[in-house]
Amino acid sequence: MLVARPGNLMIFVGLLLLALMWIYPFVWLLSASLKTQPEIFGSGLGLIPDEPIWENYVRAWTVVGFDRYFLNTVLITGGTVLLIVVRSALAGYVLGRHRFIGKKLLIGIFVVTFFLPEGYTIIPVVQLTDQLGLLNTYVGVILGLGAGGHVSATLLYAGYFSGLPKELEECARLDGAGPFRIFFRIMLPLSGPITATVVILTFLFAWNTYLLPLVFTLSEPGMRTLAVGMTAFVGEYSTDWSGLAAAAMIALVPVMAVFIALQRKFVDSIAGAVKQ
């Protein structure tokens, strides 16, 4: 290359320093989660604890009930991802490959509500969930998170299905397959890559979401997710800083581990979604 080597090196060092700054908060959190209470704010910038205090994790896990929060988060995330994938794939398939009465209207509604932020409809959603008798239930939270919104997932499927060759269906139809067989036997298996994208994006959304589970579990602490439980920890044990750091690590590590294991997929999904 034409560019001089020292310049390259400087750019690399700069990027590396910035990257270290970027992960410093996590390193500090890890270190704080292993320190004693006075050490956190008393030992200056030192990151290595005198002696790792694993008890902090035990406290966060059992006393505060993070085991329960963890289970809640897994159930709610799993349910939400499943709901969104199923309904988006079904709707995306017919939107992408078929004409029907009312299609324009449906797309129009999608476009109008595309940018509606979650916080602005929370009051009626609570009201609705209450009327359905679903407040303080997993299904209530899952429906609240996954039943509405997520137009982008539907559109991703629609875009993908519309790009598949027309012959696929015609052959199957000649063999006597009905629409359900065509969808479940041919189309759905073909949609692997886009399903991966949708799963990853909705997983990130559902695992990290806060406002809706917060409001839905106000009167039922046993239903809290990790994100909500974390803030409850602050309210009830505000001065237990090392426990707080340990709790934060417990809540953050799984999603970071999933990311590092699947990072190629994550990055491709997001890049793919934006290109659409």
């Binding site: 349910g79 709901l83 209530g140």
Partner: peptide
């Protein structure tokens, strides 16, 4: 889990899935 009934088919499907 299911609420007080009346949650509709979607809820039932979901519950059986999870």
């Amino acid at each position: 889990f299911l609420g007080a009934g009346g949650a509709g088919a979607l809820a039932a499907v979901l519950a059986s899935c999870i």
